[in-house]
Design a protein around this nucleic acid. Structure first.
Length: 476
RNA sequence: GGCGGAGUGGCCGAGUGGUUAGGCAGCGGCCUGCAAAGCCGUGUACGCCGGUUCGAAUCCGGUCUCCGCCUCCA
């Protein structure tokens, strides 16, 4: 398996810290507002990687944090006259709710920054004691970037290059020894939340929390550190600097997912051009969002406009129709739900297409090439449909394999998938009754009545399909 | 200004030397009472200009345009 490592900027053979196990840490959201499409893409990217690694036979441990104390949370709380904890709680819930809709599996641990103050103080104390950090009275504690000799590598730049640019866009704080030094701890200002430390009251700087939380959850030298591309510099660079200065081992591989664009411009809250994740899911469905993410390689910027979402929704509809055919043919992918690649390779899982599974695995092994993996799946779907048309014996195997692989990517298919709006409109019993009426009319070749019933059902969101052995229906 | 990435058929989006990516939409056909679903066929795409090569979207040089990071950001 090859993974593109941001640190070295090349695809590298993936060798985990412990054979058969993968530990990953993914930087989660700062909860000061509702999640947007970008949060969705990033979360889905790592959810897909995680699911794939598990299918591939690894025992995966995923930690993903919530930053629940930060300048923006403080600002919002003060603006709205409530507590920071209140703001954080509201938007953590908002984030979790959308993650659940998207089918993003909960991480094994979801550390909150405010629960790791003690560990952060330990990290900072150590850095202070070894001279890698320094106090500035009344302002806080800063990390001295010179204590991490290869500072800048993650960003693909050298310390001197970075120094030359510093201050070109932002004024340099004169209290810092070097313009690149960053705050580990911010001294308390009136009205802000605060914690007591050996160097006075205050609150943590952003870059230390992930150090404390990732190492607490996963231990030194964990395998994968992920997050959005925009975190490479300075956030991840600064995490790395702290751990390196302390002489510890940090992430073995750095993975970064690309941004979501709107009109070919980065979508960001700071640019005010963002689409709320909830809105996109409402409009196109959670699976369309996931499919769209899968259709673009994770390291490429992607456009997530209305047209693209609509197209993805149509594709999901096709997969659902396929799953319905499968169910009608009595093929249930449930039987293979717990199957993993080693089971297929070893021949222990009978009834699946080994070659297709291999092609799928080969694609994913190449830096998680989900577009190529999807290619394998869609070709298989076509072949399976053709086999179903022809009543070929191979149909069951192809159908089961296609649905199984979709499941690996986290795409549920069939009416159980989601969104099937059962609540309003006709009940199943009513639909069945109407269909019986229609069957009678059709048998009598009274197609005007049959078509009228079909139209009525369609108006109620029920699509009817006539097949040689009777009619089937589903909700849209 | 520095560093990095990208320009592919109507749209999204893979693809690093030669065989069909895939999805969505369109068109033709099969099937169907008509549909739906499905299958088959269909598009001679690779920003521009040169070059290397028997052969380039894919390599080299040049050029134009766009985007990201350098500041909080998934």
């Amino acid at each position: 398996m090859q993974i593109f490592d941001t640190m070295t900027r090349r695809k590298t053979a993936f060798v985990p810290r412990t054979p058969g196990e993968v530990s990953m840490y993914v930087c989660g959201p700062t909860v000061y507002d509702v999640p947007h499409l970008g949060h969705g893409r990033t979360a889905l990217t790592y959810d897909i990687i995680r699911r794939y690694l598990e299918w591939a036979g690894f025992d995966v441990t995923l930690a993903s944090n919530v930053t629940d104390i930060d300048d923006k949370i403080v600002e919002r709380a003060q603006r709205e006259g409530r507590t920071e904890a209140d703001v954080a709680t509201e938007f953590t819930a908002a984030y979790d709710a959308q993650m659940e809709r998207l089918g993003v599996l909960p991480p094994d641990s979801r550390p909150h920054a405010t629960h790791f103050i003690r560990q952060m103080i330990e990290v900072i104390s150590e850095l202070l004691s070894m001279g890698a950090a320094y106090e500035v009275a009344g302002k806080g504690v800063y990390f001295a970037v010179d204590s991490a000799p290869r500072y800048g590598q993650l960003a693909g730049r050298t310390l001197s290059q970075l120094n030359a640019d510093a201050g070109s866009r932002v004024d340099v704080d004169p209290d810092k020894r070097s313009p690149l030094d960053f705050a580990l701890w911010k001294a308390a200002r009136p009205g802000e939340p605060r914690w007591d430390t050996p160097w006075g009251e205050g609150r943590p700087g952003w870059h230390t929390e992930c150090v404390a939380m990732s190492l607490s959850a996963l231990g030194p030298g964990f395998d994968i550190h992920g997050g959005g591309d925009d975190l490479v510099f300075p956030h991840h660079q600064n995490e790395w600097a702290q751990v390196t200065a302390a002489g510890e081992a940090f992430a073995r591989y750095w993975v970064h997912s690309a941004m979501v664009n709107v009109g070919s411009e980065k979508m960001a809250k700071s640019l005010g051009n963002y689409t709320q994740l909830a809105d996109a899911i409402d409009a196109a469905g959670a699976r369309a969002v996931r499919l769209l993410v899968l259709q673009t390689h994770y390291r490429r910027a992607m456009e997530m406009g209305q047209d693209a979402l609509d197209a993805a929704r149509s594709a999901v509809g096709r997969l659902d129709a396929f799953a319905r055919r499968a169910a009608a043919a009595g093929i249930s992918p449930q039987r293979w739900a717990a199957v993993r690649r080693p089971d297929i390779e070893s021949g222990a899982a009978v009834g699946l297409d080994v070659e297709a599974a291999r092609a799928f695995g080969a694609a994913m092994d190449d830096d998680f090439a989900t577009p190529a993996a999807l290619d394998v799946v869609f070709r298989l779907v076509r072949r399976a449909n053709a086999a179903l048309d022809a009543s070929r014996d191979s149909a069951a195997r192809d159908v089961a394999t296609a649905l199984h692989l979709l499941g690996v990517l986290g795409i549920k298919t069939g009416d159980a998938g989601e969104e099937a709006a059962a609540a309003d409109g006709l009940t199943d019993v009513e639909v069945e009754a109407l269909l019986e009426e229609r069957a009678t009319a059709r048998a009598a070749r009274d197609f005007s009545i049959a078509d009228r019933i079909r139209d009525e059902l369609a108006a109620g969101g029920i699509v009817v399909s006539d097949n040689p052995d009777g009619a089937t229906w589903h909700r849209v």
